[in-house]
Amino acid sequence: MSENLKIIEIEVLRYHPESDREPHLEVYKVPFTDDMSVLQGAQYIKDNFDGSLTFRWSCRMAICGSCGMMINGIPKLSCETFLRDYHPNRIRIEALAHFPIEKDLVVDLSGFIEKLESIQPYIIPKEPRSLEQGEYLQSPQQFNDYIQFTSCINCTLCYAACPQFGLNPDFIGPAAIALLHRYNMDSRDGAAEERMELVASEEGVFNCSAVGYCSVVCPKHVDPANAVNINKTNAAKDYFLRFLSPKGGSK
């Protein structure tokens, strides 16, 4: 055991809203084994050095989306990032970029939750069906059209990777637009025109300048950049063709 135990320096961006004017860095020397994640490093600090260190986590297996943080400046899930890959260098962990810091590594996600609600993230049936009419059928091809965009775990790493969201917090942003696209692409859904009002708005897709980093950091390969950019084309079509069609998406 003891010969396996190495020490890594973890630098943590700390912020206590009641006593700190602004965040500051603190360094902890953490003994670790090769199987320890960055999240476990943070837990070690909380258990052994400072019980007030605050961070979110739950599943420890990259599916709950709670433990995202900036690790050496890159948004990552701390549960699937390993201390051994940084040793012997120092590792720096900070709250996810572009969000307001609530305390230490915890950010304020209320804006994101509002955006999720605003995209109407549920199927709004194209045609109402009674029980007698039976279920909605979907072909494998129709299923393939949207399945990729269902994989989002709301970890918000893509927002921490998106400078346009950092510059304009009103931007609906990658994950919410990817989810919006998921419902628009679902053959059972008929609300794409309703959602267009948001897509084409000043908070919508045209805030994106195709940086593409959101798709790079996405741990679930959702490719939100693609969803956003496909909707730029959709919104442009809607913009120019709305006079031809009486059912244009927005005013």
Binding site: P17, E18, H98, P100, I101, E102, G166, L167
Partner: peptide, 10 residues
């Protein structure tokens, strides 16, 4: 509320 969310500079 004791909340005072800190917004970092871009």
């Amino acid at each position: 509320s004791k909340r005072r969310p800190y917004v970092r500079s871009m």
